[in-house]
C-alpha cells in the first residue's frame, strides 16, 4: 500500500497538474522542479485541460502484477492540446476503433485496486471525445 504516494500525487492524477515555467513559459507534465528548457527553478503549478490526440497505443496482454485483474487493457501516448505528451490508459473504446491521431478527452477512472483490502487508486485515463 503506497498510501503516501497515492495522496501526494492526487493533483497530478486527478487534475493533470504539471508545472509552468514563469521565466520562459515552458509547460511540463509531470511537474519538474527545474524547467527543461531554460533550467529556471521559478515554476508554478499548471493544470492541463485534458484534451488531446493519440500519438501511439498498445494493448497490454501480459500485465504487471497489480494490473492483472484489468488485463487486457490499452495504454496510449497522448499529445495534449497544450503541447505536452503523456502516458495514460485508454478506456471505453474497443481496440479495433482506436487510431493514431484520434481526439481524446481525460476522464477519471480506477487505475487499480491494491488488493481487496487496500486503497483504490483513481486517476486520469483517456477516451474518445464524447460529442455533444
Amino acid at each position: 500500500m503506497d498510501i503516501p504516494r497515492y495522496w501526494r500525487l492526487k493533483n497530478q492524477r486527478y487534475r493533470l497538474q504539471g508545472k509552468k515555467c514563469l521565466d520562459c513559459g515552458n509547460l511540463s507534465f509531470p511537474p519538474r522542479l527545474v524547467c527543461r528548457k531554460c533550467k529556471s527553478r521559478n515554476c508554478e503549478p499548471y493544470e492541463f485541460k485534458g484534451m488531446g490526440t493519440l500519438y501511439s497505443y498498445t494493448t497490454i496482454f501480459q500485465a504487471p502484477d497489480r494490473f492483472d485483474q484489468m488485463a487486457p487493457y490499452m495504454v496510449g501516448l497522448i499529445d495534449l492540446e497544450e503541447g505536452v505528451r503523456i502516458t495514460a490508459q485508454l478506456t471505453d473504446v474497443l481496440p479495433d476503433d482506436v487510431q493514431i491521431g484520434m481526439k481524446l478527452e481525460m476522464v477519471i477512472r480506477q487505475i487499480y485496486e491494491d488488493g481487496p483490502k487496500g486503497p483504490i487508486l483513481y486517476g486520469y485515463k483517456f477516451r474518445p471525445v464524447l460529442k455533444f
Binding site: 484489468m70 490508459q89 478506456t91 476522464v107 477519471i108 477512472r109 480506477q110 483504490i120 483513481y122 485515463k125
Partner: peptide, 13 residues
C-alpha cells in the same frame, strides 16, 4: 459499468 468504473468515477463525470 466498465471494469474501471465505480460510483466515485461516475459521480465525478
Amino acid at each position: 459499468p466498465g471494469k474501471d468504473e465505480d460510483t466515485a468515477t461516475m459521480s465525478i463525470e
